[in-house]
Amino acid sequence: MLFSRLKHCRCLIRDYCSSITANKSETSLSRRELQYPFKYQVARQAWVENMDTIDEKKLGLLDLHPDVFATNPRIDILHDNVRWQTLYRYVSFAHTKTRNEVRGGGRKPWPQKGTGRARHGSIRSPLFRGGGIAHGPRSPTPHFYMLPFYTRVLGLTSALSIKLAQDDLHIVENLELPTNEPEFIKELVKTRNWGPSVLFIDESDIMPRNITAATDEIRHINLMPAYGLNVYSMLKHDSLILTRAALDVIESKLLFHLHRNNTQEVVSQYKLDQV
């Protein structure tokens, strides 16, 4: 038993890491002021965890706005979002030739009358074997469309609510790791039962050096800035880890769109080639 654990280097890493961050104790957390008042629902709560040791340390409890983290789990809207995300960048390159594009077929194959055969004008007509295809797929066929803005907003709030309700949303203080070894983050994810695939969201796209180096080679642990948060990635990964700063950005942005005064520019029809 002990040998097998040593073989997987778990004990060693655990010792190594906890020794580094042994005397880092409780950090004081300021209470979050939720922006827009709500009546019926109560604020949801989530623990803030640390990232500098493998074992989980709870640093404090945060309030989350129910309009973002406790909405109806609209799986139909999630499906709309996922379908849109896969389709808007999909271009079909299936291609068939029409009767005009198939080589040959310029002359009448046999006289109109007198042969006893059916009348035909070209051997490349769609009725012929080896002829052109009528109404076949033509390449390139773009499938771009824009999902309505508030369907996108509702998709994000639904996905965040589902993640929180299923205990797959975790909040961390920051993404500072004590080491840049991939084994550390692998072990951390395994110990905390975050599932094989994890999505880390930070506020900006420039993240701490250690976590970028550690997760560079791991295909199922991904980093993303807050502006890249999307429904597809949230559903694809088992758990979603938000930093405290990312949480503030995401919540305030979504709440702004849910309460904004002038929706003209976001709700109006999407124009291609806009400057």
Binding site: P37, F256, H259, R260, N261, N262
Partner: peptide, 8 residues
């Protein structure tokens, strides 16, 4: 200036 969000 008009408020960006709907006030209470």
């Amino acid at each position: 200036l008009p408020p960006l969000t709907v006030p209470e």
